[in-house]
Design a protein around this nucleic acid. Structure first.
Length: 286
DNA sequence: AAGAGAGTCAACCGCGCAGGT
DNA sequence: AACCTGCGCGGTTGACTCTCT
């Protein structure tokens, strides 16, 4: 099925690109533009496959490709988007200007997977069932559906389930350890707090609320910042408007966020959006 | 100093989709 | 309907670097 054009041909170079090859490819694409990758090697005088040229351009040579370390804000955004979208690296990359899907994928596999593991320590009692929508089988491109949880990336939408006991990583300002048995901020990264849904706990906004309300508060706070297009700081819980911020206040904003962005070329289809709607639906009761 | 093991990341590979013939 | 072309995607590989002993 049309794979011949990408396949190995006699005398083709493989492996790391040389400076000369980079210059040839950059000069060609800068002059003639992207596209028609199968003809690029011939026209540019490169002994590479078109596929290799495309990859090299997109992941390395293209202008505005951001190199170097990921910021804390980028880490958080990737983790939250991965929780939402799964291994759809191109979609995730679409939300991080200058980052490529390959780079994000590598970064996830080498670094963020562990970090995300901690953030995913939301404790679910065995009796809790996921919302039926989360198990729905999607048509066609379901193999890359954001709902498809990989072995280690179980999609958990806390608002879509009913809990009797709640747990979350401590991202809130430190509460009194004596009152709640909550560790201090310093040890928060290794711990998960368990609070009964009906247990009265101190809210970050002041006063006491039930555990489930605090969890909802925490969840919404995180979700808003993750889906806002600004960076944020877990220590202060303050969003920084260093990039255009899109308010996230539910599915409709999520849809518009995804659909109105010209940089996103792989848009969710109607079923996907419907499924996301189900995930954001509390199912009537928390 | 050197060898082993772990971590990182550029690049490759196979698959599948959309559109054209 | 069947096949071809062009392309994009996600998983995997392997060379290189870093860290530990």
């Amino acid at each position: 099925m049309g794979r011949n054009s990408w396949c190995f041909k006699e005398g083709i170079n493989k492996g790391t690109w040389s400076l000369t090859e980079d210059k040839l490819l950059t000069a060609f694409v800068t002059t003639y533009g992207e596209g028609k990758w199968t003809t690029v090697p011939y026209k540019a005088g490169l002994k590479r496959s078109g596929k290799s040229c495309r990859l090299r351009w997109l992941n390395y040579l293209r202008p505005n490709v951001k190199r170097g370390n990921f910021s804390e804000a980028e880490d958080d955004l990737i983790i939250r988007l991965h929780k939402l979208l799964g291994n759809r690296w191109s979609l995730i990359a679409g939300r991080l200007p200058g980052r490529t899907d390959n780079e994000i994928k590598n970064y996830w596999n080498t670094t963020l997977r562990k970090k995300a593991g901690f953030l995913r320590q939301i404790h679910l009692p065995s009796s809790i069932q996921r919302h039926p929508a989360a198990n729905r089988v999607l048509p066609s491109s379901s193999s890359s559906s954001p709902l498809q949880a990989t072995n280690d990336t179980t999609l958990i939408r806390a608002k879509a389930i009913r809990c009797t006991e709640l747990a979350f990583p401590l991202l809130l300002p430190p509460c009194s350890a004596n009152k709640l048995g909550i560790p201090t901020k310093q040890s928060a990264e290794e711990s998960t707090v368990k609070v009964a849904a009906n247990e009265m706990v101190e809210s970050s906004k002041g006063g006491f609320v039930e555990g489930k309300e605090l969890f909802q508060e925490q969840f919404q706070l995180e979700e808003n910042m993750a889906l806002n297009y600004g960076s944020f700081d877990d220590d202060t819980m303050a969003a920084f408007c260093d990039q255009p911020v899109v308010e996230f206040d539910g599915l409709m904003d999520f849809e518009s966020w995804m659909l109105n962005d010209e940089d996103v070329d792989d848009l969710p289809d109607a079923d996907l959006i419907q499924s996301l709607a189900c995930l954001f639906d509390t199912g009537g009761q928390f």
